[in-house]
Computed example of a mutant assay.
Amino acid sequence: MAARNERLYIVTYDIADQKRWRRVFRVMEAYGHWLQLSVFQCRLTARRRAALAMRLDREIKPAEDHVLILDVGPADEVDLRVESLGKSFQAIVREARVI
């Protein structure tokens, strides 16, 4: 049921300070899959998306940093098409994890 309420987001950021960049990176690791240096793909419910935005807002300096959260659409309905130049791109496959 929760998966039906998830949306796919691409989050990218430009952080001016290396220390803040590392903190933002650690926040993002908790919410999505790392694609490139400052780019993550996330499947999030509305609640987790709001929590992510709040955590990022606490870490950045608005006058110096920039974060984009791109809503791609319903996670299970999006046919994500990626053109990759250079290194190969591996699409992220949703897998169940037992913890």
Results as ranks from 00 to 15, higher is better:
Gly73Arg: 00
Ala75Thr: 04
Arg55Leu: 09
Val98Arg: 12
Asp65Ile: 02
Glu6Pro: 10
Thr45Lys: 04
Ile92Phe: 14
Ala51Val: 01
Pro74Ser: 04
Thr45Pro: 02
Arg48Asp: 14
Leu35Asn: 07
Gly86Glu: 13
Tyr31Asn: 06
Leu70Pro: 05
Arg48Met: 12
Asp71Trp: 10
Leu56Cys: 06
Ala50Ile: 00
Trp34Leu: 06
Phe40His: 06
Gln18Tyr: 12
Val24Met: 13
Trp21Glu: 12
Gly73Phe: 01
Arg26Cys: 13
Glu6Thr: 03
Glu95Phe: 01
Ala75Asp: 08
Asp65Phe: 12
Tyr9Leu: 00
Lys87Trp: 13
Leu35Trp: 08
Arg97Trp: 14
Asn5Tyr: 11
Glu64Val: 02
Arg94Thr: 11
Ile60Ser: 05
Val39Phe: 07
Pro74Asn: 01
His33Thr: 10
Phe40Trp: 09
Ile99Cys: 14
Arg49Phe: 04
Met1Trp: 07
Arg48His: 14
Val67Ser: 10
Tyr9Gln: 03
Arg94Lys: 10
Ala75Lys: 02
Asp14Phe: 10
Leu56Val: 05
Lys19His: 13
Val11Pro: 06
Tyr13Asp: 11
Arg49Lys: 10
Ile60Val: 14
Val72Trp: 04
Ala51Asp: 12
Glu83Met: 02
Pro62His: 08
Glu83Asn: 00
Ala63Gln: 11
Met28Gln: 08
Leu80Asp: 00
Leu8His: 08
Glu83Ala: 03
Leu80Phe: 00
Leu8Gly: 02
Ala50Asn: 09
Trp34Thr: 00
Arg94Glu: 15
Ile99Ser: 14
Ala2Tyr: 11
Cys42Gln: 05
Asp65Cys: 06
Leu70Thr: 02
Val78Asn: 00
Arg94Ala: 13
Gln41Ile: 13
Ile92Asn: 11
Ile15Arg: 04
Arg94Val: 07
Ala53Val: 09
Gln41His: 09
Glu29Leu: 15
Leu8Tyr: 07
Glu95Arg: 11
Asp14Gln: 02
Gln18Ile: 07
Arg26Gly: 10
Tyr9Lys: 02
Asp76Glu: 13
Arg20Tyr: 05
Val82Glu: 00
Asp57Met: 07
Val93Gly: 04
Arg22Phe: 08
Arg47Trp: 11
Lys61Arg: 12
Ile15Gln: 05
Asp57Arg: 14
